[in-house]
Each structure stands twice: as structure tokens, then as C-alpha cells.
Design a binder for these strands. Structure first.
Lengths: 325, 325
DNA sequence: CTGAAAGCGCTTACAG
DNA sequence: CTGAAAGCGCTTACAG
């Protein structure tokens, strides 16, 4: 592979000058600029980003840490993050933490070793605080974190309110909320608060069912749901904290012979593609993932460039009505 | 951030020696080894992988190019690839090509600029050949490619045969195959051949319905499927070339009032998580993604280390029966 | 067993 | 407008 030295030699121009035209920096005569371009093209020269990063002490790689990419929510988020990063000529170093705290710590170390431009840390199950000597920006998405640079989340409380109001308006009189993981502090927990507040304001009886970390990681809730429905056969409205859960509520309803939306109505959260692939399709609270990803990337880059950035960014949510209500 | 120089100075030991203990290379006295470890720990030293890559002219980053991560098939594949790469202390630089040929070319250039250890290129819609001056290994997954180092695929033909045989055994007498994208050459096309051969061997009437690239990218086949079912109301067995399509066949059957599996039986392909989230659940041909990912990573690393690696690796598939047949 | 030196492929003040 | 030189943080023969 051709190096800057090869270009320099072939063009009969010093390395420093070749570098300058490469980076469009300082004054360069049109003649040498053309000569350099021509030579680079002829040698099929590609600047070595590794060398560039080392000498500039700054790379264009963003470390992205997500719990599990098989979860469509994270897949979609990752897709948007890659899109916006790429638009600004940044690349994504992808790390999957599998939701394990220790592994996440290791991944952060990996990011440090690779001198990434910054880190985007997505919604995990535990609080993290000891990112002391991290000398790059850290942006979180849907995750509480002390000590981070910036946090992007959707308006979870409002999402809970909208979902619950919708169910009540549609005539539900006994509501179930399938909430988050027991004993964790996440922004998503505010959905439950929105649910409870709205039920109480409307004097609607309601129950909440949080679940274990294990169910969350496996994404298989069927058994858990069957128990709940066996215990509470009168439930006529369900607000699930994800579409994945909501899809499985549909399955359980089918087994219990409950017709959706006639006997029971269901609202999910996230509005992932799956919401359109079920029978019936799922009403869901849409997180503006595209915009959240854009915010995360731009904030990260802006912070890296030493600008002052917001500590917290909260985005509006929207209810998308479909067949399940 | 501490550098090797800091460690060297603090420990009173030359840089070269520090590097040697870091890499466990050559003879080092126990005393200096301990001294270095202690100092590294005290300074919280993390070797700079960027510098290391530059000086070794070889990195531990694998460029991974997939069309779309929102597609659960690619999400799962990516997850396994990250897993096995991580096990061998490699990282993943993730690129999403969006199925666009030009973008894919650019991404390969990105990989080159970043001097990745190698590239894993996943199933895309077009043939690629001009990866001439690529001086790193290129491994493809479920994709035909001339000029690559190695290609990993599942036994697509056998998958087509198994799916079709299963439908016939279950009593289907008029079969539909929703095949791949028109006019592309992919390993997955062999599924259609397996379908046709099996139908003919059993004298079962059958039709094939390939679709456009646009449908594939949007992952929305409903309208297309409705047309087909309107034209061919007698179909009693469907072999879909992905679970995503199969899930939408379920939706269309629901609209047409066809009971699955009583009136019509459905077999998907890939066995992604979605196959378990539908009503009824989906029978599917399982690709051994975990093993395929492992093969891809190991082959890549092996080739990078200048070993001779197989040109083609084909893995067995398995039919997983569920509610839709 | 260890140190000094050259080199990896760039960037960037500093002269001129 | 351009060149020479130092430096980024490592690794690796080569001496000793």
C-alpha cells in the first residue's frame, strides 16, 4: 500500500506539503496541488488513518456499547447512530455488553485502549459511575449515569401517560402495566410512574408487573405472562414497556382465547418494525430513535471539539395507533 | 493518559524493556517484570492500541459490512461475530451498506484506510469482484464473491429441499415459494432450486414468486403477498425464503380468513427470534448462525496470520417445526 | 537480560 | 508557498 512517502517521492514534493494538500491546510499553489492529486490517484494512495490518529492524538472512531443487538430497539438505534456518524466521517466500533456489568467495564477499557473519539453507552440495567479517568466524551442513551458528558432520552413519563390515557379512552377499565426490570434505576422507569399517575387520576384499577433481569435478557416472557393472566383474568388493557413484550402478550391472549382488541387492548413501547408484523398490528409509543441517535452523535462530536454541550436532552414521544387498540 | 514513556521513567527502566514485558517477549528478569507491572498499575497505564497498530503494521480491528442491522438475521449474525471476535481480542468496526453497491465500495475503502485486520462482508444483493488491491483477508457470509479469501454459507439447497419435503409430508398439494430478489446471484438462490427439484420429484404443482429489491430493503411484503394470494387462492403450502416474509404471510392469511396451519401451512427460513413471537409460531429452516460466525472470524484471523484457509465453507441446516405447519 | 536507535506513516509548528 | 525536523506512542532487530 502506497504511503505518503511514496507520493512525496513520485511527485518530487516534500512530505509536509503532501500532507498539507491532503488536509487542505495552509497555502498551496494550484500547480503542486494538482501534481499531488494526480500522483495520489496514480498510486491509488489511501491515507493511513491509524498513523493520522496517532499523530493528531484524536481518532474518528466512536465506541458504541449496546447490551444486545438482537433486540430490535438497539438494532434500530445502532443503525441510526451508524448513519449519522458516517455522515460526519466517523466510524463505529461496536461492543455488545450482553447486559453484564463486568463486561461493560472491560469494553470501556477497550474503548480507552483504542483511543476512541468518544463513547455512546446505551440503556443498560445497572447504574455506572466509576468512569473517572475517561478522557473522552461519554454520551448515554436512555440511561441514567452520573459523571457522563451528556444524556439523551425520550420523555418516558409522557409516554406512560399517553399509552394509559389511550387505553382508558378506548374503554379499558382494569389495566396492567408490564414494567421494567426489578430494582434498577433507568429512565424507562418513569413510564411506570406515568401509568400509575394516569390510572389514579382517572380512578382506574390497575396492577404493575415488573420482571426479572433474566426474562429481559432472554426476551422470553410467555411463561411469566401466562401466570399473570391466569391470576388476573379480568384485565382488559395492557401497557407493555416494549413491543417485544407486547408481541408476546398477543400470543398469550391467543392461547387464553382473548380477542384483541375486542376483549383486551394492548399498547407497546418503542415502535420497532415488529409492531407492524404481528396479528393484529401493535399500537405503540414511538421513541424518536432517529432524532435521538442524531443528538447523541452530534453531542458527542461537539463535546470532543471542546464545545459546551447540554447535560441532558429529552425528546418527545408519540402514540402510533394500530390494530391492537 | 500515561504513556510507555511515563512508565519507563517512573520505573527507571528503558522503554524497550517495558515494551517487552508488555508483550511478554524475550527474557526479562522477574525483578524488572514486577517493577514494570507495579508501575503500570500505579499509573493506570493502558497501552495505546493505535500506536501499537502503526508500529506493528497490523491491527486487531475487523471491518464488518452488513446491509442492514435492523434485519434480525443480520443482527444475530453480527452479535455472534462480535462475540467470537471479542473472544480472540479483536474488535468490530461496523459498517451498514444499506444494500447500496456504491456505499459498499466506499465502506471497503474506509476499511482500507483504517488498516483493518480483515473484512467480513455479509450477504448483499449484488456480485462484487473488484477488490483488487485489498491487502487484507476478505471473508464473505452467505454471499457469492470472486476474489475473496473465503466464503461461508449454509447449505441453501438442502434447506429448500427440507422445507419443501416437510410441507409435502404435511399434506400440502399446491406450493408457493417466495424466493429471493430478481436477477441477483446469491447463495440463497439455491433454496429455490431445492424447492423446484423437490416439487418435481413429488409431482406437486408449484409456483415461484421472486420479488423486487425494493421490497427486500423495506422488509414490507404485504401488498405483494395480497396480490399473489388473490391470484392463487388454492395455495395450501408456502415456503418463504425468510422468516420476515413468513411472518407477513401469516398476516395476509389472517386477512384472507385462511387458518394456519389448517388451511395453509408455512415454512420460513433463518429461524430468527421473530419465528417464536408470531401467532402461530413459525416452522423455519435454521441456519447455524453461531457456527457460521465462528467460522468467519476464525478463518479471517487464520488467513491474516498467513495460514492457508478453505475457499468455501458450507454448513448444514436444520428444520425447526413449530405452529405454522 | 537490557538499552539505544531506527522505524511505523502521519501532522505541525518553524524557518525561509 | 514549501522544506526540514521533531514528535505521536509504540515495536523490534541489534549490540552489549
Amino acid at each position: 500500500m502506497a504511503t505518503i512517502k511514496d507520493v512525496s517521492r513520485e511527485a518530487g514534493i516534500s512530505i509536509g506539503t503532501v500532507s498539507r494538500v491532503l488536509n487542505n491546510r495552509g497555502y498551496i499553489s494550484e500547480k503542486t496541488r494538482e501534481k499531488v492529486y494526480e500522483t495520489m490517484k496514480r498510486l491509488n494512495y489511501q491515507p493511513n488513518e491509524v498513523a493520522r490518529s496517532l499523530s493528531k492524538k484524536s481518532s474518528t472512531i466512536i465506541g458504541l456499547v449496546v447490551p444486545q443487538i438482537e433486540n430490535p430497539y438497539f438494532a434500530s438505534l445502532t443503525s441510526y447512530i451508524e448513519h449519522f456518524a458516517s455522515e460526519r466521517d466517523y466510524q463505529i466500533l461496536l461492543f455488545l455488553s450482553d447486559g453484564r456489568e463486568q463486561r461493560e467495564q472491560e469494553l470501556i477499557e477497550q474503548c480507552k485502549k483504542n483511543r476512541v473519539a468518544g463513547i455512546i453507552l446505551c440503556s443498560g440495567l445497572f447504574a455506572v459511575s466509576n468512569f473517572k479517568d475517561l478522557d473522552c466524551p461519554l454520551v448515554t442513551v436512555e440511561r441514567s449515569l452520573e459523571g457522563g458528558t451528556s444524556s439523551v432520552e425520550c420523555d418516558n413519563y409522557e409516554g406512560g401517560v399517553k399509552a394509559t390515557q389511550h387505553l382508558i379512552e378506548k374503554g379499558c377499565r382494569y389495566l396492567l402495566h408490564l414494567s421494567g426490570v426489578v430494582g434498577n434505576i433507568m429512565p424507562a422507569d418513569k413510564r411506570a410512574q406515568g401509568f400509575v399517575d394516569t390510572c389514579e387520576a382517572n380512578q382506574i384499577p390497575h396492577i404493575e408487573a415488573p420482571f426479572s433481569e433474566e426474562l429481559y435478557e432472554k426476551m422470553e416472557y410467555i411463561g411469566f405472562l401466562e401466570e399473570i393472566f391466569a391470576m388476573h383474568p379480568d384485565i382488559d388493557g395492557v401497557f407493555a414497556s416494549s413491543d417485544i413484550i407486547a408481541a408476546q402478550v398477543l400470543q398469550v391472549c391467543a392461547r387464553f382465547g382473548k380477542k384483541v382488541p375486542d376483549d383486551i387492548k394492548i399498547v407497546g413501547f418503542d415502535d420497532i418494525p415488529l409492531a407492524k408484523w404481528t396479528v393484529p398490528t401493535l399500537t405503540s409509543v414511538r421513541q424518536p430513535l432517529r432524532e435521538m441517535a442524531e443528538m447523541a452523535v452530534n453531542t458527542l462530536i461537539s463535546a470532543k471539539e471542546c464545545n459546551i454541550v447540554p447535560k441532558q436532552i429529552r425528546m418527545a414521544v408519540e402514540l402510533v395507533q394500530r390494530g391492537s387498540t
